[in-house]
Design a protein around this nucleic acid. Structure first.
Length: 335
DNA sequence: TTTTATT
């Protein structure tokens, strides 16, 4: 019985059970999870190559869309380097993500589709308690409880990934429809949807079948998933008759709010440049005093990079100020 | 009432 609970609150348990995976392969081959969306295989290779010589490296992508699936494999020549990579790179913060680095289990059919979706959980249940409930059925690889982004309170929904599919099946048999100790409502336990089942065909048909939609939000979101270029989106914008926030035609215009009175253009270049191609920056100043009026604009060429910059820099603390960063909207001056 | 963990 080698079940390991996670080491910490953020489900960073490494899958290096002493008895389970002691093949040669497992000592050099790593799986890297929770990678930022825009990270390329080259960047992955470069990051892990800084530890030692890499035998092979692969970023896993969606077969159809080419989108990164947020994880990859790094195989070192020397097992010592693999161990070093776990020790130094696991938990590393990259942009908005905290990456997880652990030994890859030997690939086999038995470990696929072992991910469970659990709903109806008591809102008070912690990740640890969730694991305690499931651990009797097998070795837990990851666990997660989804929380409300704003309040941080549990949504009563979570995921449990087991080492083996058969363990997941047993957990469904044993726990689906059951009440956890102390709970008033039964929980639902089933296999989680396979993310790759959500084909872009379905997304595309949504895009094209709604020529009258007026709501930029969701469409915008899907554009991100599909990695359309700004030009493609522009074409679709006219086709669908909608507005895409921040899209000026020459790039993606980003609104930066709460700059200090003495802010200048160089600070905007410095902040946004690392995220990708920046074509223009502008600090808005008072005509008389020549002091910054508290905001500015940045234009970036590529949607993905602009989105990443916004995700990373919104809420960023510059001096004693907390910046607000978003795509520029066409709102005049209400709300 | 679905996050991105098996090449």
């Amino acid at each position: 019985m080698e079940t390991q609970l996670s080491n910490g609150p953020t489900c960073n348990n490494t899958t290096n059970g002493p008895s389970n995976s002691n093949t040669e392969d497992s000592k050099t081959n790593l799986i890297v999870n929770y990678l930022p969306q825009n990270m390329t295989q080259e960047e992955l290779k470069s990051l892990f190559g800084s530890i030692g010589e890499i035998e092979s490296c692969k970023l896993v992508r969606d077969k159809i869309t080419g989108q990164s699936l947020g994880y990859g494999f790094v195989n070192y020549v020397d097992p010592k380097d693999a161990e070093k990579a776990i020790n130094t790179l696991n938990g590393l913060r990259l942009q908005t993500k905290t990456i997880k680095v652990s030994y890859a289990r030997p690939s086999s059919a038995s470990i696929r589709d072992a991910n469970l979706y659990v709903s109806g959980l008591p809102k008070t249940m912690s990740q640890k308690e969730l694991e305690q409930l499931f651990t009797q059925y097998g070795r837990i690889i990851t666990s997660r409880i989804l929380v409300d982004q704003v309040t941080g309170v549990s949504r009563g929904v979570g995921f449990i990934r087991f080492d083996k599919r058969v363990e997941a099946e047993e957990a469904i048999k044993g726990l689906n429809g059951q009440k956890p100790p102390g709970a008033t409502e039964p929980i639902t336990v089933k296999f989680a949807n396979n993310p790759s089942q959500k084909t872009n065909q379905a997304i595309l048909s949504q895009l094209y079948q709604s020529p009258n939609r007026r709501y930029p939000g969701p469409l915008h979101h899907q554009a991100q998933r599909l990695r359309f270029s700004p030009m493609t989106i522009d074409g679709m914008t006219s086709l669908a008759g909608i507005n895409i926030p921040g899209h000026a035609g020459t790039g993606w215009c980003i609104f930066v709010y709460n700059l200090a009175p003495d802010a200048d253009e160089s600070i905007l270049w410095q902040m946004f440049g690392p995220f990708g191609a920046v074509t223009n920056v502008k600090v808005i100043r008072d005509f008389n005093t020549n002091k910054c009026k508290g905001f500015g604009f940045v234009t970036m060429t590529n949607y993905d990079e602009a989105a990443m910059a916004i995700a990373s820099l919104n809420g960023y603390r510059l001096g004693d100020r907390v910046l607000q960063v978003s795509f520029k909207t066409n709102k005049t001056h209400k709300a």
